[in-house]
């Protein structure tokens, strides 16, 4: 409990410091929709993802920052047969994909500080991502782990609720070249719902 209190106190201090800089800290929940590469083995939408992001305001319309997030994709496949050349394997399958992108980002918010609480923003980022893909056929585990370059465009809405808080809703397309277990590209959509602490009308 003591550690929770200390952590919370640090978070408040951190938020206070970014308030002073006219920037914000965003915690978001991610819904991941598999796209290229991932759909080869997981088609199911993931509701298991979250991220933390910091945005520093360079001026009234542009921000730069960084983020870290975690998307978990998973799907259970009933018994099926897969054939590779002269080899066939039949099993029940559990499949998992973990993506942990660590990114720098930049955003343009043309309506920031115009007095309108509902604002559109767009931007993007790039960085590196940890990728872990697992297929569990029956008792066995096939695991592919790598670090990959990642880039994404993003567009979304920001709803300013008070001087210190705002809600974020955005979509981004994460692109990881040659990161898939078969060396092809990985892509997935993120629908993000976030809550922001910071200075939203400075």
């Amino acid at each position: 409990m003591k550690k929770i209190t200390i952590s919370f106190a640090f978070m408040l201090l951190f938020c206070s410091s970014i308030l002073a800089q006219g920037s914000e800290f965003i915690a978001s929940w991610h819904i991941g929709i598999p796209s290229q590469g991932i759909t080869n083995y997981i088609a199911k939408t993931s509701f298991q993802g979250f991220g933390f992001e910091y945005r520093y305001a360079l001026n009234q319309q542009f921000t730069v920052g960084g983020s870290i997030s975690w998307n978990v994709f998973s799907e259970e496949k009933d018994i099926s047969t897969w054939t590779f050349d002269n080899l066939s394997v039949t099993s029940h399958n559990w499949r998992f994909g973990h993506m942990v992108p660590i990114l720098v980002n930049a955003h343009f918010n043309p309506m920031r500080n115009t007095g309108n609480p509902l604002q559109i923003f767009m931007g993007g980022g790039l960085g590196t991502s940890y990728v872990n893909q697992e297929i569990w056929p029956g008792m066995y585990t096939y695991r592919h782990e790598t670090w990959s370059f990642v880039a994404y465009p993003e567009i979304g809405l920001r709803y300013v609720m008070s001087n210190e808080t705002a809600l974020y809703f955005s979509t981004q397309y994460m692109f990881l070249p040659n990161a898939n277990y078969d060396n092809n590209n990985i892509g997935y959509w993120n629908l993000k719902l976030g809550f922001s602490f910071g200075a939203h009308r400075w």
Binding site: W29, F47, Q48, G49, F50, V72, S74, E76, I79, L87, S88, V89, T90, S91, H92, W94, F96, W136, P137, G138, M139, Y140
Partner: peptide, 22 residues
């Protein structure tokens, strides 16, 4: 929601762990 268990656990049936290879 994000904390739900992902990995196969106690509800896994034994035959789901069988593997047939040819």
């Amino acid at each position: 929601l994000t904390s739900c268990n992902l990995y196969p656990g106690g509800d896994t049936r034994t035959e789901q762990l069988d593997v047939v290879v040819t």
